[in-house]
Design a protein around this nucleic acid. Structure first.
Lengths: 377, 377
DNA sequence: TACAGCTTCGCAAACGTTTGCTGGCTTTGC
DNA sequence: GCAAAGCCAGCAAACGTTTGCGAAGCTGTA
């Protein structure tokens, strides 16, 4: 390097002059101009004590005149802090962004991060498998971030490598059952339980569950579990042929397939709103009235859920709040060296009853010894 | 600082030992271990010439054993490059992410950036107005990025400050008419022209334009201009009461309002697909058949446009390609010091005819001296 | 044998900033 | 009037890495 050797020199003292156009002005330039030491300039510009008011003003004025911008790399080198946090996720960026759930989580993270004057870096781990921890995103390998927020499910070995890299991190919307890590989660089980409970309370007995891909993974698995438990607590047997998984792309097909093989279905719970809306459209187009013939309940309460026809009954989770909480947790972790133990923060899932759910078409009380809603709990 | 003064010392030579748990291993540790100079370690690990093969292997092995990770800040300090680019936009992050257009642009940027082994930082300029260029995002102020990609419209003074900050930058999907800057754009005028032309060719004479907020700004303004020109070239007068602006939230209202005051409307062009889909739903729900009673054409060709009922006729632009192009342009700018002059890259807008467009309900040839499609051009 | 050329490695400066320490000066307290 | 205390500013080291230069060793040729 040393490409700046070509700069002209002041013959008096041999110091480089600030005359090269594409040369950024540094703290040294200001110090020389004002006639003080660089240490004083540093203290003056950072509003640290030990500089007289008038000298401080002089220095700040000169800095502004010279369009001075500090050089973060040098500062970080000595302070050991970059004031930047990294975001890590295991999908293509486009997928993450077009996901209405995560985009709100990200907005929450960004808001909190910005409020604390941190910056954000992004990286996806999708693609080649990460075998060694030097294959982690560059900003982690090169210590360009102070901490990391993992959003959504990632492979377990990525978590392992994060641990061995020594980076402080917090996970949002994902947890490994066997590890004890900092995580911010939605109460998926309780949410799905409440949704199922609502339908059972309305009189439904044949309730389908249409899921994402893979069905038993992460959040979807937990929601399926909530559905299963609610059925069980109501004395309704869980039936395999009422459950269908598959990608979001054919979310509408799932519902139609179940209705084809189980015409007695009167309600559908979807693993998320995107699937629910797809099912809603598909069913309506096939002539099924919602909620008269069939009830639909979603999960997540994405913005569009309130604007469907009929508006979607769904389970609300404060995604933005989850993002903020994760960011705040990480920031605390970075500041308080006396690290409190790892913990999981669980956000409640609140049922939002709109108009896509109602009683089943023909209440057949004699059909089975149905457990009446008020008998339970 | 100097908090590491507390580390224990090797009494033999006074050098700090690698025994503190939370002490990262550095190039010096490796050098001491192997018994060589730090310069040799640096050259060995970076695969630079000047190191014998066996010594290089020894060094690399020891580096792996010690879980060595380079410290990017120190490297950047001397190389003057961070291998990071910043993304700048003038909206809340959530808004950006939930926008199907920009989320694909971002995906394209990320793909290209990653391929070139760069990292990405994000920042929004929304919020307080930026008066002085030290109020730019921190990663620009602190030189934490090598260059910047501006996505979408931002205030002109932000561009000015970017210029005075000396950061290389490229704009995607926005341009200031009076400046001459690097930009990657979609051919909005031609796209809207083609869409309007299609409808005129089908026989429509009363064509509405429903727009975004603000109507005459940026892309929307250009699309409106294309609509206006096509009308003009076909000899159809532009009529104010056929145009309605307003936020995307009430995109459906726009179309309904126009139809209320101009029942003779037979076609609607929307400034983007989100508005078009809102209009489609609203009109269908009011009993207007699409395309039998009224034709609808969108803009952008977002993924969902192909899955509406009927599938939406729209104007396709290669958003991902635009993102990639912008990233590539910036990277070239960063590498080739012989900067080629600023230029605008315009991506073509391609009309995609699906099923939401058709001939007007009752062709009334005597209604006016209609310019027949084949008379034009 | 001598010397030129090449390879391999060490030396040390440099990148821009922060910060512990020290010394000089001024103010305060008695 | 003098010591103690406090404020201000400078000195210099340190952060971890890269890199131009030069020295040492080796090979090959004249």
């Amino acid at each position: 390097m040393h490409r700046f050797r070509t700069a002209t020199f002041d013959l008096e003292n041999g110091k480089r002059l600030q005359n090269n156009k594409n040369m950024k002005t540094t703290i040294k330039d200001i110090a020389r101009d004002v006639g003080v030491n660089v240490a004083t300039v540093s203290r003056a510009l950072n509003n640290k004590p030990g500089v007289s008011p008038e000298l401080r003003r002089t220095i700040q004025r000169r800095a502004a005149e010279l369009n001075y911008l500090p050089y973060g790399q040098a500062r970080s080198l000595v302070t050991r802090r970059t004031e930047t946090v990294g975001l890590l996720f295991d999908m293509e960026l486009g997928t993450l962004l077009s996901n209405p759930f995560y985009s709100e989580v990200l907005a929450g993270i960004e808001a909190e991060i910005r409020q604390h004057d941190y910056s954000l870096m992004f990286a996806s781990t999708s693609g080649e498998p990460v075998q060694h921890f030097t294959a982690l995103p560059k900003f982690i390998v090169e210590h360009r971030v102070d901490g990391v927020i993992v959003v959504g499910s990632v492979e377990a070995n990525i978590i392992d490598m994060l641990i061995t890299s020594g980076q402080p991190f917090v996970i949002v919307d994902y947890h490994l059952p066997d590890r004890h890590l900092d995580a911010v989660l939605a109460d998926n089980v309780r949410g799905a339980y409440a949704a199922t409970e609502l339908l059972i309370g309305l009189g439904h007995r044949t309730i389908a569950f249409v899921g994402g891909e893979p069905l038993d993974h992460g959040n979807f698995g937990e929601r399926l579990e909530g559905y299963r438990r609610a059925l069980n607590d109501a004395g309704i047997p869980f039936q395999d042929d009422l459950v269908a998984g598959g990608g979001i792309e054919n979310g509408d097909l799932n519902a139609l397939q179940i209705l084809a093989r189980r015409p007695d279905t009167t309600a559908v719970i979807a693993c998320n709103d995107t699937n629910a809306i797809a099912a809603l459209n598909a069913l309506q187009r096939k002539g099924y009235g919602v909620p008269d013939r069939i009830s639909i309940v979603g999960f997540d309460d994405i913005p569009h859920a309130a604007r469907t026809h009929p508006p979607l009954t769904t389970v609300h989770v404060d995604r933005r709040g989850m993002g903020r909480a994760a960011a705040l947790r990480l920031i605390h972790k970075l500041h308080d060296n006396d690290s409190q133990p790892e913990c999981e923060t669980v956000f409640p899932a609140k049922l939002v009853v709109r108009e896509s759910s109602g009683p089943p078409p023909a209440a057949k009380p004699a059909d089975s010894e149905a457990v009446l809603p008020d008998e339970r709990q």
